[in-house]
Design a protein around this nucleic acid. Structure first.
Ligand code: DCP
Ligand code: MG
Ligand code: MG
Length: 745
DNA sequence: ATCCTCCCCTAC
DNA sequence: TAAGGTAGGGGAGGAT
């Protein structure tokens, strides 16, 4: 019971990934399971813990977990206590507790999540227990790599880019929801009555509002002594470290080769490689920028003060910002957690106020509510509003009036246009173009020839202050993905597959979160560039890499972790990359469809039922006595889809399959899944005879004339059918799987 | 023409 | 040490 295999679909839903391993869910699930007083495993056999002080999971929760997994919980420390679980302990207390290892509570939850007892040394709170030389220094647990269980949550809990992506999506969703349940009343507008009457513009007025050095400003709320000083938010503290000089120089060269358009500074052999997420305007005066490496920032700004992240704080301030604006209007396009476009013309018209008075009012209110400064730009379209905001910053406001647009635009740098990044700038520079005004000297056709049709046209318009893109108040998701390009270090194929499984569970959880299923799956791999050092300058970073993407479209939309992993795994194998060279893995889901509503009555009926055991093999030959086991929710999950094969008789189906087999040496995934889903449904519908006939027909003819690709297709099809068997009967069925073939022996 | 797949680019 | 994610627009080139 302590190991899992590919057939064991049930392992997924419970313990596949980060979402599931999150404390709240973990405990929730365990409480459910413990309440039915079921023993879950023997993972913790031989482990006896004593919990000292507050922990997460809590002592109460740990007690339940211990008994559910074969461990022992001691209310007091006893001679038989094998481990002490604690979060923080003063040194004096450590001495008192003697030689019993002191571990973090996550050792228990991670072990359960992993399905096996993990090495407790990675979870030691202090050294001095397993070491010969006792030390009482607080020890950081060794950093996890993607091969370690619990890595995904550890990584996402510390990734600022993950945070801002997640927050961005959340606020788009929030605007959607607020608009849906809006009654059209905006209480904030009352507060505008006290403003002086003025002439509201007759034209369209778009506001772009954005927090000033967002992460820094949030951090400075509790550090007023740092105001006015160069400050950066970063993981690193700037302490110098040692790296091999040669490989650092090699990587510098490679970066220039792979990113010729980017102006990346060289890295030296001792500076911190942590990224500056956000820096104060004082730091910007020295040339420090968001996204810079801390080591390089310190070179140009030696008194740069670093402060740590405050993820909860960012969330609070973002919510306060959005709530404040939503008091006045819901014509909001959320851009990110610190930024949005707002159609303010109706507000100004209704209250009869000027842009300037509105700007002053709303900025004051945001500062009052959040404790953080922001700036606002105004113009007739989003481009103008945005450029105006750039000029307004920091802590300012600016209205780019229609009459001033032409003059203003001429001096704007092309690189300041939204959508114009380093690659586009490089092309424009090659054409001798730098300012928006320079575009007057060349034809639109010339621009398009260099930049491509669409971007050429857009840039030509933007340079003239024209922006046809309307504000989009309602956001619809088109894709869901999860990428990790940090900490990816695998020693073999199994580690890579296991991680892909976790990542699949993760992306599936996100898909379910938005109530969608996906027709198309794309796997993205980063592979160490051939000439790049095996270990890059950034600790556990991906270094310089080549990218590989492979995608697949399936007949039925994907909606469960097992199918997502199954598809992703096929693609991973197809890429045939040495797992030791992998530096990044991503799974994205596109062509989304809404999940059909579930039958809640059936769901309720299914609750509390035992999940099927996949180790139980069912012999087809005894299909008469097949036990009709409990049916997990997959059986009922997606009702109402008709397969094209359903109406065919066996005599119609066989020649169809034969024709397909003969038509190609490389069957398409979409065809394979289409047939497989039908056969899976046969299993679920207990049409075992028919299933048996089709499977043996397939096996016979693929053996006879199938290529290697057909063998792969057959195995994949069998995997899908077995999902149906497990769902209906609690076990897989015995089927032929072996082919005589040079590759698949 | 229009699609699909495998990229590249951009922004926060 | 360090936490290099994520979603969307778009193009090249081949298949249909
Ligand atoms: N390379 C980057 C860019 C941004 N961010 C995060 C931190 C920023 O505070 C936040 C908002 O991004 P902005 O582009 O709005 O930048 P700031 O708010 O920091 O500064 P500005 O005053 O220019 O808006 O996103 C990040 O982590 N890494
Ligand atoms: Mg900002
Ligand atoms: Mg911003």
């Amino acid at each position: 019971m302590t190991s899992r295999n590919d057939e064991d679909d049930n392992g997924f839903a419970e313990w596949g990934g980060y979402m599931a391993a999150k404390k709240a869910k973990l405990v929730e699930q365990y409480e459910q399971q413990a309440s039915s007083s079921k023993k879950q495993s023997d993972i913790l056999t031989g482990v006896a813990i004593y919990v000292n002080g507050y922990t997460s999971p809590s002592a109460e929760e740990l007690k339940i977990l211990m008994s559910a997994h074969g461990g022992v919980y001691h209310t007091y420390q006893m001679p038989k206590t094998t481990h002490i679980v604690a979060s923080i302990l003063p040194n004096a207390k450590v001495k008192q507790l003697g030689s019993v290892p002191i571990v973090k509570a996550t050792w228990i939850s991670d072990s359960i999540a992993a399905g096996a007892l993990l090495d407790h040394r990675k979870y030691l709170l202090y050294t001095g227990h397993d070491d010969k030389q006792p030390k009482l220094d607080c020890v950081r647990p060794k950093t996890l790599t993607a091969a370690d269980p619990g890595f995904l949550s550890e990584f996402y809990n510390n990734s600022r880019l993950h945070l801002i992506s997640t927050l961005g999506a959340e606020y788009k969703q929030l605007v959607n929801q607020l608009r849906e349940k809006s009654n059209g009343v905006y209480p904030g507008r009352e507060r505008l009555r006290t403003l002086p009457r003025g002439l509201a513009p007759s034209e369209r007025v778009v506001m772009h509002i954005d927090m000033d050095c967002f992460f820094v400003s949030v951090g400075l709320r509790s550090r007023p002594q740092l105001r006015g000083r160069p400050v950066a938010v970063t993981h690193g503290r700037g302490t110098p470290i040692n790296r091999p000089q040669a490989s650092v120089e090699c990587e510098n060269e490679l970066v220039k080769k792979y990113f010729p358009n980017e102006n990346f500074e060289d890295v030296d052999s001792h500076g911190s490689m942590a990224e500056v997420a956000s820096c104060s305007y004082e730091a910007r005066q020295c040339g420090v920028r968001n996204g810079m490496l801390l080591g390089n920032a310190l070179k140009i700004c030696s008194d740069l003060k670093t402060i740590p992240y405050d993820f909860e704080g960012y969330r609070e301030v973002s919510t306060a910002l959005y709530k404040t604006i939503a008091e006045y209007t819901l014509d909001i396009e959320a851009v990110s957690c610190d930024e949005m476009y707002v159609d303010v013309a109706p507000i100004l018209a209704a209250a009869n106020i000027t842009v300037e008075d509105w700007a002053t009012h709303i900025r004051k209110e945001v500062i009052a509510v959040t404790g953080c400064p922001c700036s606002a730009g105004f113009g007739a379209n989003r481009l103008q509003a945005r450029l105006a905001n750039k000029r307004a910053k920091p802590a300012g406001q600016f209205y780019l009036r229609p009459d001033d647009v032409e003059t203003y635009m001429a001096q704007v740098s092309l690189s300041d246009l939204p959508g114009v990044g380093s690659a586009t700038v490089a092309k424009l520079t090659k054409m001798g173009l730098h300012k928006c005004g320079d575009l007057q000297t060349v034809s639109r056709g010339q621009i398009q020839a260099e930049l491509g049709n669409k971007i050429g046209q857009t840039v030509a318009d933007l340079a003239n202050g024209i922006d046809h893109k309307p504000l989009n108040f309602h956001h619809e998701r088109k894709s869901v993905s999860a990428d990790v390009n940090y900490g990816i270090r695998f020693k073999d194929k199994t580690e890579a597959s296991n991680f892909l499984q976790s990542l699949s569970a993760e992306v599936c959880a996100r898909l379910k979160d938005v109530g969608m299923r996906a027709r198309c799956l794309t796997l993205k791999l980063l592979v160490r560039a051939p000439d790049a050092p095996v270990e890059p300058a950034k600790y556990l970073g991906c270094g310089v890499c080549n990218t590989i993407t492979r995608s697949t479209t399936s007949a039925g939309a994907l909606g469960d972790a097992a199918s997502i992993y199954r598809e992703a795994k096929v693609l991973l194998d197809r890429c045939a990359v040495n797992p030791r060279e992998l530096r990044g893995v991503g799974v994205q889901l596109t062509r989304l469809e809404a999940t059909p509503p579930r039958n809640t009555a059936i769901k309720r009926f299914l609750q509390g039922e035992v999940k099927a055991s996949a180790s139980n093999k069912i012999d087809l030959r005894t299909s008469d006595e097949l036990p009709n086991r409990i049916t997990p929710e997959v059986v009922y999950e997606y009702p109402g889809e008709k397969s094209p094969f359903e109406s065919l008789t066996l005599d119609e189906l066989r020649p169809l399959i034969l024709k397909w087999l003969e038509s190609t040496a490389t069957p398409k995934n979409i065809d394979v899944t289409l047939l497989a889903e039908y056969l899976k449904q046969l299993a679920i519908d207990r049409q075992i005879e028919r299933l048996k006939v089709v499977l043996s027909f397939l096996y016979r003819h693929i053996s006879r004339l199938g290529s290697c690709k057909w063998h792969d297709a057959y195995w994949k099809l069998i995997d899908i059918v077995q999902e149906g068997m497990v769902a209906r009967y609690g076990g897989t069925m015995l089927v032929e799987r072996s082919f005589c073939c040079s590759v698949h022996s």
